[in-house]
Amino acid sequence: MGIRISNLSKTFLINNGEKRIDALLNIHLEVEDQEFICLVGPSGCGKSTLLKILAGLEAADEGLATLDEEIISKPDPDRGMIFQEYALFPWRTVRKNVEFGLEIKGYRPEQRLRISQKYLALVGLLGFADAYPHQLSGGMKQRVAIARSLSLDPKILLMDEPFGALDAFSRLRMQEEITRIWNEEHRTVVFVTHDIDEAIFLGDRVVVMTPQPGRIKSIIPIGLGRPRNRNSHDFLRIRDRVYAEFALYNTDAGESTDDETGWGEHLPAAGVAGAVTTVADLNSYWPE
């Protein structure tokens, strides 16, 4: 049971078919029921494409993905999706946004009210039920989107860089918030991010992905209890390990000149400076 992805590939043709981009190549991954799994990697590694395929919004070219042994071919309320851009309907109030999926399902108004009430309370936004999305902060908007997805009682929750547009402080707050919500409403979560700390803070396992072609490089089990301390020795040890994965990726691609991710050029080539593995070293090379 759970999500099973086998031999999945997806290719995009750009410039009228002149150039092929292997967004995903031979992806194998199994996600257990109620597992919180994080996909992490630089832009272009195919993590968002993989998520869209799981949502049924895009089709794979080869291979398949299944949820509870059923092949995923189109969107379904069983698979809720959270977008970086929140995707709230600006003409609906917070409550009406949460009730959108219930309207689609044909629930009666009193049922809708009961369910929206429950999930607005869960995300702590009961007091904003009648506000419009533009009146809310980014973090609040994303909480509305989470409540909206949960209201449909999905088996899995797909989150596509949900905190990517938030400032650093709201981001940390939302990471704690999602941990709390996940503790109350246990679901399978596939969480895409390019923030390594975020992935380690949230995930049961962290899937490290690399671009060109989009592949899974390694899967790192976290094995820490929740809530997690970002400064604990174990946390930093795992962080070191994930950073090392990316440094190794870079030495592998040392000869490649068309590195579009912008990561490679900040790192010394393997032959010159040797493998970069310590956090301190890496931080000094980190872009931004």
Partner: peptide, 14 residues
């Protein structure tokens, strides 16, 4: 029209 809104509605079964 915001494509993300259409995607969101699709994932909710519209």
């Amino acid at each position: 029209v915001d494509i993300t809104l259409i995607s969101a509605a699709l994932t909710m079964g519209a």
